[in-house]
């Protein structure tokens, strides 16, 4: 904790000069001073002071505007010290960028402070809004380094998607939901799409459908995806085509922690005796936390309603078991009252 604070402190300490030269107000005052002094080049801080002292004795009354001469900002921990002077930061706040989140990342802070709105931010914002990104503030909060990328590069990445037969509708659905996509080079995107195609034997159409359904999975850590695939195939014993159908139905499963998936699977398969084929049909049930399934299953069990075989009467659908609030569950599935369910929960 203390180390982190120290690190941030040092960072802002080194950067405090930056904001001084960045400030728009100061620039204007430099220019006015420049005009009065009759010099052609832009003077540095020292020169301004020199010019004033050249013609005036210290004993004479000072008539020039020297309100801009001020000490540097003191070392600070956060953006708040700079915000009232820096136009770039103000514009970012107007865009709803959460600076309090950004200042916790040490690499982002120097980058953001060096930005100039007109030059570095404006065109990117226009470009993103044309791509259909509605909440630009959230987008930049998630991936501030999008502002570092060259616009030409971004256009090339969009063109790459078009060349791979992604329609413009698909692109406007992919880009806003995965802020990191545009920062990934075309080679990387290509290799990752290729990985999913090879690993799960997907057709071109299926790869595109996968990218639209869960864009974050494409740029997700491949090691994590491989680990989850291993858990599905070896630890749960699913066949290749079953894993593929799960990937296309619920791609989020490949981004979850495999230990949690295994716990839920074990409870479903061993305690509730649900065959693997049924679980593959409704893969979203694996995303449910174990305690929720256990509570509801045991409640149904005490009521004598835990019957998950669709061929027999009083069948409870697996989706209905995990979805909906407790009120809905008690009314529609358990045919009981919430008060009874709450009392039951207090017996665990």
């Amino acid at each position: 904790m203390l180390n982190m604070l120290l690190q941030r402190f040092k960072l802002f300490h080194n950067l405090r000069r930056l904001s001084h030269t960045q400030s728009e107000d100061l620039k204007q005052s430099f220019q006015t001073n420049n005009a009065t002094c009759g010099e052609e080049h832009l003077p540095s801080d020292l020169q301004i002071v020199d010019n004033q002292t050249k013609y005036q004795s210290v004993l004479e009354e000072c008539t020039d505007d020297i309100s801009h001469v001020a000490t540097y900002l003191k070392p600070t921990f956060n953006f708040a010290a700079y915000i009232n002077k820096s136009r770039t930061l103000q514009e970012l706040v107007k865009l709803n960028v959460d600076l309090s989140v950004l200042e916790k990342k040490p690499k982002v802070v120097p980058f953001i402070l060096k930005l100039e709105f007109e030059k570095d931010v404006k065109n990117h914002v226009i470009f993103l809004s044309e791509l259909g990104v509605e909440n630009i503030g959230n987008f930049i909060t998630k991936n501030p380094f999008i502002l570092k990328e060259d616009l030409e590069n971004l256009k090339i990445r969009i063109n790459y998607l078009k060349s791979k037969h992604f329609t413009s509708d698909m692109i406007t659905s992919i880009i806003p939901r995965n802020p990191i996509w545009l920062s990934t080079s075309t080679q990387d995107i290509d290799s990752k799409l290729g990985f999913f195609q090879r690993e799960f034997q997907l057709s071109g159409k299926e790869v595109r459908a996968l990218a639209v359904q869960q864009p974050r999975l494409i740029t997700y850590s491949l090691q994590h995806v491989k680990l989850n695939t291993f858990a599905f195939k070896e630890e749960m014993g699913l066949r290749d085509d079953e894993v593929k159908s799960m990937l296309l139905k619920k791609p989020n499963l490949f981004m979850k922690l495999h230990t949690n998936l295994l716990k839920t699977f074990e409870f479903l398969h061993k305690k509730m005796n649900i065959p693997i084929e049924r679980i593959v049909e409704v893969p979203q049930i694996l995303t449910c936390r174990v305690f929720r399934i256990r509570q509801r299953h045991l409640f149904l069990d005490t009521l004598g309603r835990a019957q998950y075989n669709p061929r027999k009467p009083n069948y409870v659908p697996l989706i209905g078991l995990v979805s909906g609030s407790d009120v809905d569950f008690c009314r529609d599935i358990a045919k009981s009252s919430v008060q009874d369910f709450n009392l039951f929960l207090k017996s665990f």
């Binding site: 956060n78 953006f79 708040a80 010290a81 915000i83 009232n84 930061l89 103000q90 706040v93 709803n96 960028v97 959460d98 600076l99 309090s100």
Partner: peptide, 8 residues
């Protein structure tokens, strides 16, 4: 703005 929730 130094007191804005997005900044602090």
């Amino acid at each position: 703005l130094a007191d804005h929730p997005l900044v602090v």
